[in-house]
């Protein structure tokens, strides 16, 4: 099953199971969504459960929040994660503070097709996850495999906090794997060891997971190093224990993400690792991320700013040689 089919499967499964789940977004109805994540769901569940809206990102996220106060579990779709800027206030001001101020759950999920590598240009390529990590009260989930896309989405829908769910759109149809049918839950806050290794911890999530695994396999094949790949799966909640236990085993750490570098999630990871496992380190913790710029449109330029097999490989070499 592809990554996007896994998302569709999770939505359908939860909608069958729980009549309080409905979908709300732009062009998600009969059209099936810009990426076809909701394909067939309008036909199956009707217009009251797959709700097409005007172009109102704040309006539709606000509506999801409002409906969630009355027993519903809405799943909102951003057509592209870039457009979440239009709904920023609803998420950080309203959704994130409601439990703290009112003692009420806000069980909404906002699905965000994110990431670069498709020549989407500056406004269809962003990875905005860290903006929401900084706001207390929001959960942030970034699946990197089809089975996690399903299992984490089901957990997110069942969660009583607002969840930002970042789906990397380059993975939508490029990744295919076995996905369990029916009930399949992957808990939030549990990292996965995507590849067991002993020489270096490569910590990543979402769109750069396949890249991390590819580099690790290449190093193993060439007999250069045995790299452990940690897939965080969710940034909030964060599985700090899994991170530290890998770091203590390998003593060398590369943190990788597709979001740009400065004040990205990698900065938080480096801080946590040096605070909690400084004595275990044999080299400074290294970050690799996109160049600090808007994501450029031309494929040749876009390739330059994104992490690549070559840039990840050299960062690994540098750490191993330290």
């Amino acid at each position: 099953m592809t990554y996007i089919d896994a998302i569709n499967d999770a939505l359908q499964y939860e909608m069958e199971r729980d009549s309080s789940v409905f979908l709300i977004g732009e062009d998600i109805g009969a059209f099936g969504g810009a990426f076809k994540a909701t394909k067939g769901l309008y036909q199956r569940f009707g217009k009251d459960r797959v709700i097409d809206t005007p172009i109102t990102e704040a309006g539709l996220v606000g509506a999801a929040i409002g409906a969630s106060l009355f027993g519903y579990r809405p799943v909102a779709e951003m057509q592209f994660s870039d457009f979440i800027t239009n709904a920023f206030n609803q998420l950080v001001t309203v959704a994130a503070t409601t439990a703290y101020r009112w003692g009420l759950p806000v069980p909404i999920v906002v699905r965000c097709p994110s990431g670069a590598g498709i020549s989407g240009g500056p406004f269809h390529s962003r990875n905005p996850e860290v903006w929401f990590v900084h706001q207390p009260g929001l959960k942030v989930v970034c699946p990197g495999t089809p089975e996690d896309a399903k299992g984490l989405l089901i957990s997110s829908i069942r969660d009583n906090s607002p969840v930002l769910f970042f789906e990397h759109k380059r993975l939508y149809r490029s990744l295919k794997s076995e996905v369990p049918s029916g009930e399949y839950v992957v808990p939030l806050g549990k990292a996965k060891t995507a590849r067991i290794g002993k020489d270096l911890s490569l910590i990543t999530y979402g769109g750069t997971l396949p890249l991390a695994v590819e580099v690790a396999e290449a190093f193993a094949k060439e007999g250069k190093a045995d790299i452990e790949v940690i897939d965080l799966r969710s940034l909030v909640p964060l599985d700090l224990e899994a991170i530290l236990s890998s770091v203590r085993k390998t003593s060398r750490v590369l943190v990788l993400h597709e979001d740009n570098l400065t004040a990205g999630f990698g900065a938080e990871l480096v801080a946590l690792i040096t605070e909690h496992a400084f004595e275990a380190l044999d080299a400074p913790v290294k970050r690799l991320a996109s160049f600090d710029s808007p994501v450029p449109f031309a494929p040749d330029l876009e390739r330059e700013v994104l992490p690549s097999v070559r840039s990840v490989g050299s960062a690994v070499e540098e750490l191993l040689d330290y």
Binding site: I51, T56, A58, G59, L60, V61, G62, A63, A64, I65, G66, A67, S68, L69, F70, G71, Y72, P74, N89, Q90, T93, V94
Partner: peptide, 14 residues
């Protein structure tokens, strides 16, 4: 102003 979409969502729920 942020509460208007939220109140509208409450109306959607009704």
């Amino acid at each position: 102003g942020a509460m208007v979409p939220v109140a509208v969502g409450a109306a959607l729920a009704q």
